[in-house]
């Protein structure tokens, strides 16, 4: 059987061989990574965003490239998923955006810093990650249910919706992060009510004029928690949306009545 000398030779030899292979692969990887990650697009703004990401230990809750702490969402594709406008609004006051839900620290970032973080995440989203994060394969099965739920309010016919310009504020103020309106926005966003735990869909807004009066809509947007405690609808007034902007939004929504097919 094996002698101690042979055992030691096995250990030292094996370690040397595999450490050698590892170093060769590392050398090659180091050479290939710049291309695979679009390193030429790492601008000073992106680099600054990475520094902010690290200085605040964002990975202590979130994951990026799947690495982190699983307490908060994966952010690799967040710019693609939510859009830059939504993220800007969200970072300024995370708890307002998800009332009663899991909390995020409210950092007092400047607009410039927020742009840097978004630039960094945008760069991350474009790195070739060998297929991660994968498109959920069963989403197709879930999609009809999600669409039905979030379109419960009903939509204008696409041909009609395409002719109506959507005021920029609906995207800038993050409405389209959850609601569908005039064919834009996230389909099928469903979040739990923080009080009841019931999962509720964000309804499409095209035909909201059929369901609510002007006063009801203004009261709802101004303080959703007062009307429906625990609702996932964020409380963005007045910090992120001014009362005047609320009125403009409501007037636009009610104005859609003119475009509704007569039936």
């Amino acid at each position: 059987m094996l002698s101690k000398y042979q055992a030691r030779a096995f250990f030292l030899g094996g370690t040397a061989v595999f450490a050698g292979i590892f170093l060769v692969l590392t050398f090659d990887t180091h050479r290939q990574i710049p291309k695979q990650t679009n390193a030429d697009q790492i601008t000073p703004q992106v680099a600054a965003g990475k520094k902010i990401w690290e200085a605040n230990n964002c990975m202590g809750c979130h994951t990026l490239f799947g690495e982190g702490a699983y307490y908060a969402p994966e952010l690799t594709k967040v710019v693609e998923r939510r859009g830059k406008d939504w993220i800007k609004v969200f970072i300024k006051d995370p708890e307002a955006m998800f009332p009663g839900q899991r909390k995020m620290v409210k950092y007092d970032f400047t607009d410039e810093q927020i742009d840097q973080i978004i630039a960094f995440l945008d760069w991350c989203g474009k790195v070739d990650l060998n297929g991660f994060p994968a498109e959920p394969p069963l989403k197709k099965l879930m999609q009809p249910a999600a669409d039905t739920a979030s379109n419960a309010g009903g939509e204008l016919p696409p041909a009609v919706a395409a002719t109506i310009p959507l005021p920029a504020m609906f995207e800038q103020k993050s409405c389209t992060g959850c609601h569908r309106i005039l064919g834009k926005g996230m389909p099928g966003v469903m979040l739990p009510n923080a009080v009841t735990g019931e999962v509720v869909p964000a309804p499409a807004l095209d035909l909201v004029f059929q369901r609510k009066t002007r006063e009801e809509l203004i009261a709802w947007i101004s303080d959703p928690q007062k009307i429906k405690p625990g609702s996932p609808m964020p409380n963005l007034v007045p910090a992120l949306v001014s009362p005047q902007e609320v009125e403009q939004m409501v007037d636009f929504l009610l104005g859609l009545k003119a475009h509704a097919p007569a039936n």
């Binding site: 094996l2 002698s3 101690k4 055992a7 030691r8 096995f10 250990f11 094996g14 370690t15 595999f18 450490a19 292979i21 590892f22 692969l25 090659d28 990887t29 290939q32 990574i33 695979q36 990650t37 490239f65 799947g66 690495e67 790195v127 070739d128 990650l129 060998n130 297929g131 991660f132």
Partner: peptide
Amino acid sequence: EKWLYIIVGLTFLSGILGTGHHYYYIGAP
């Protein structure tokens, strides 16, 4: 001690290149 060498030998034999399981989806080849 003889078997200690075998065990740590096996550890390095698998563990060094096993580092690769962290490199699947972070932008490495």
